[in-house]
Design a protein around this nucleic acid. Structure first.
Lengths: 110, 110
DNA sequence: ATCTTTCATCGTAATATTGCAATATAATAA
DNA sequence: TTATTATATTGCAATATTACGATGAAAGAT
């Protein structure tokens, strides 16, 4: 069906998977890494840096912006993108709780 | 096209996005959370706990197993699943490096 | 040997994602 | 006003994902 049954999951589970989904494409990982390295850049820089067509990069930027991980600032004809610090930190906290769950001794099983 | 151009990205970028992709569905997040809580369980437990059909759960378990985050052990007619500790730790390291990149001061932009 | 239980696999329908060409929009430059 | 530049949006084709019914396989129970 291709349609996730979100309603049967907790808010936390949906939140975690939504964030992870955005990280689930190498282009978006590359964009974020570049933004960390370069601090801020415009769409055209990413098109050159990454090597995907402009509409494709624009689409990935939109998804990153939708979930709040980056923000854009209009400066003339171009748009300056950068990491949204506060939201990045918040996202890290959410993921950390999930990733750092305590693991009981499961040597009796696998 | 629906086809990711993996070849234009670094191994690290593809690795990070592959892991994140697996976390990108609430059912798989729920399965992992349950395994952390319960230590180990069989497929049928997850079908009841989560409320998706058995083939669907089985499919999600397969993806988690493929990337190495869980492992299964045949015990009679059922299969005991649990977190793969070593791989979970390794995965956490990979994600941590990405999530904890240093953020320069970007107050000049956004 | 036959039934039951448990899980995987197959096949398929519905929806989502990825990527890009073409086009639209919006600000600046000439 | 008419380019030019930079990005967003639209439309579409190809592929991927999600979900489940039907079926298969394998171990244990009767």
């Amino acid at each position: 069906m291709g349609l996730t049954k979100s309603e049967i999951f907790t808010t936390e589970q949906n939140q975690i998977s939504s964030i992870a989904k955005v990280f689930g494409h190498p282009a978006r990982v590359a964009i974020l890494q570049y933004l960390f390295k370069i601090n801020s850049c415009i769409c055209g820089d990413l098109v050159e840096e990454i090597g995907l067509a402009q509409p494709t990069i624009s689409q990935h930027l939109k998804e990153l912006k939708n979930i709040g991980l980056i923000k854009g600032n209009i400066t003339g004809t171009s748009i300056c993108y950068c990491i949204d610090k506060d939201n990045w930190t918040e996202m890290k906290t959410t993921l950390s709780i999930f990733l750092n769950q305590d693991l009981n001794d499961n040597s009796n099983c696998c």
